[in-house]
Amino acid sequence: MATATAVEKPRRRQAHARPTVLIVGNPNVGKSVLFHKLTGRYVTVSNYPGTTVEVARGLMRYRGQEFVIIDSPGMYSLVPITEEERVARRILLSDRPDLVLHVIDAKNLARTLPLTVQLIETGVPVVVVLNMMDELERAGLTIQVDALAQQLGVPVLPTVCLSGQGVPAVKELIYERLAAPHSDLSSRD
C-alpha cells in the first residue's frame, strides 16, 4: 500500500498556501485576546459561554510573511460534549492546521494538561501558551516553564495576553516554525 505517502503525508499544504495556526483552549483563557493581538483584527471576546461559537479567522503578517490564524470555540477535551467542542474539533480535523497554540490559564494547569496531552497525541505540532501569568503570580504561585516544556516535549511560552506581555515571542515562534522556506517541521517524528 501507499506506505510512502502515509509517512510523507504531512499536514503541510502546497508550497503557495499560507501556513495555518489554530488557537485552542478552555473557555475564558484569553484565546480571543491572543487572536486579536496576533491578527490585529477584532473578534468578540467574551466571558460568557455561547458568544464565541462563531469561528474567527484572521491574517497575521510578520516579517513579510502571512499566516492564517483561526480562533476556535472553547474546548475542555478532544472528546466533544458541547456544540462548541464539536466545532473546535471539527476545525482541527478539517483545516489540518500546521501549528496548534494551546492557550492555558496558568492557574488551572493541572486541570488543563489533559487537553494538552490529547493535542500532543494527535501528532499536530503543539505550542503551549501559558497565559495569565500575572494572575498566577498574584495567587502566590510560580511555574517552572522550562521544566514543563521539557516534560511535555513542546515549547511553552509564558504570556499575559491582555497586556500583550509575551505575545512577541509567540509571533516569533510561529514565524520560526512555519515561515517558508520549508523548515524542519516534521522533525518531531
Binding site: A110, T112, L113, T116, L141, T142, L152
Partner: peptide
C-alpha cells in the same frame, strides 16, 4: 491522563508565598 497531568502540574508548580 488526569493522574499524569496532576503529577506533572504538581512537579512544576511552586508556591512562592502563602496564597492571599
Amino acid at each position: 491522563r488526569q493522574l499524569w497531568s496532576q503529577q506533572l502540574a504538581a512537579q512544576v508548580t511552586q508556591a512562592t508565598r502563602p496564597p492571599r
